[in-house]
């Protein structure tokens, strides 16, 4: 049977991808952050799963006001980096893993989770930046991926609890998948940030720290946070943090926190990363 080995949470700020793509990681603005990420990258070098299920959101790239499903799963054989307005990032295409993606769809549907199915979605910075954070700039990515897109930009959004339950459903689907493969699950986005309006630039380290602490030791506490509380306390776009609940839901109740990094600023964002291993 397949097995979830670990979960990672990370912000997916586009500036991080641009810093790597343009060779700026040693500049003063970036050096401290990328030094802080060295242990995360070392962990990823020794813990390479067969498939990473990556929970992300699309930023008016593939989905829009015309059609934006609450949860969408990618069943394609390959995925391309998207053109978000400045041309696609020059990173390798990503290989899908349709067998498991379809198994998740069937298993989740039986639990009354109706995932929208997409075979051709291009993946924007919300997806590709976490890959670069974990794996740097390889010629090809070391794992297959399954994209799970969550609507966190067009209200009404799924609740924090719904996201956690989706993660649990994904965890059960993986556990009943007959191939002997290892799975990683990533939650992306956040942490506190607001990108629009007069309040742009607001961050909240206390809120973020509590969220990360809860993720480790009391994950259900993070399922009781309303969207309004996220937006008020962690900025309008801080509500992206509900995607980390999907990741957490797919893990066991007791986990080992093996890495954490918190850094302000990355662009207008409080950057956070965490790695949680199943025991």
């Amino acid at each position: 049977m397949a097995k979830v080995i670990a979960g990672m949470g990370t912000s997916h700020v586009p500036g991080l991808g641009a810093a790597m793509d343009n060779g700026k990681t040693q500049e003063t603005y970036w050096r401290q952050l990328f030094e802080g990420l060295q242990p995360l990258r070392a962990w990823h070098r020794t813990n390479v799963p067969d498939v990473n299920i990556i929970v992300y959101n699309d930023h008016a790239t593939e989905f829009s006001l015309d059609s934006y499903s609450t949860f969408t799963i990618g069943v394609g054989e390959t995925f391309k980096p998207a053109d978000e307005g400045w041309g696609p990032r020059q990173v390798p295409n990503m290989s899908g893993y349709p067998n498991l993606a379809w198994h998740i769809i069937e298993s989740a549907m039986a639990e009354e989770f109706d995932l929208a199915v997409n075979a051709s979605m291009d993946l924007d910075h919300g997806f590709t930046v976490p890959l670069s954070i974990a794996y740097g700039q390889p010629k090809e990515w070391p794992t297959s991926v399954i994209p799970v897109c969550v609507n966190v930009i067009q209200h009404p959004l799924p609740t924090a609890l719904r996201c956690y339950k989706l993660g649990q459903a994904i965890g059960r689907a993986v556990a009943s998948f007959p191939e002997q493969i290892n799975i990683g699950i990533w939650g992306t986005g956040g942490l506190s940030h607001q990108l629009g309006g007069e309040r742009v630039g607001v961050v909240n380290p206390d809120f973020d720290k509590k969220f990360l602490d809860n993720l480790s030791r009391d994950p259900l506490a993070n399922t009781r946070i309303s969207h309004t509380e996220f937006m008020r306390e962690a900025g309008c776009e801080g509500v992206e943090m509900i995607m980390w609940n999907v990741m957490r839901g797919a893990l066991e109740d007791d986990v080992d926190e093996v890495f954490r990094l918190y850094h302000i600023p990355v662009s207008a964002t409080a950057y956070g990363a965490i790695i949680l291993e199943n025991k």
Binding site: Q154, P156, G197, R199
Partner: peptide, 18 residues
């Protein structure tokens, strides 16, 4: 009205702005 309308300088995408 929404309960987030009193967050200052904030413009979420909802059915009104949609």
């Amino acid at each position: 009205e929404r309960d987030y309308d009193d967050i200052p300088g904030t413009y979420p995408l909802d059915s009104r702005t949609y």
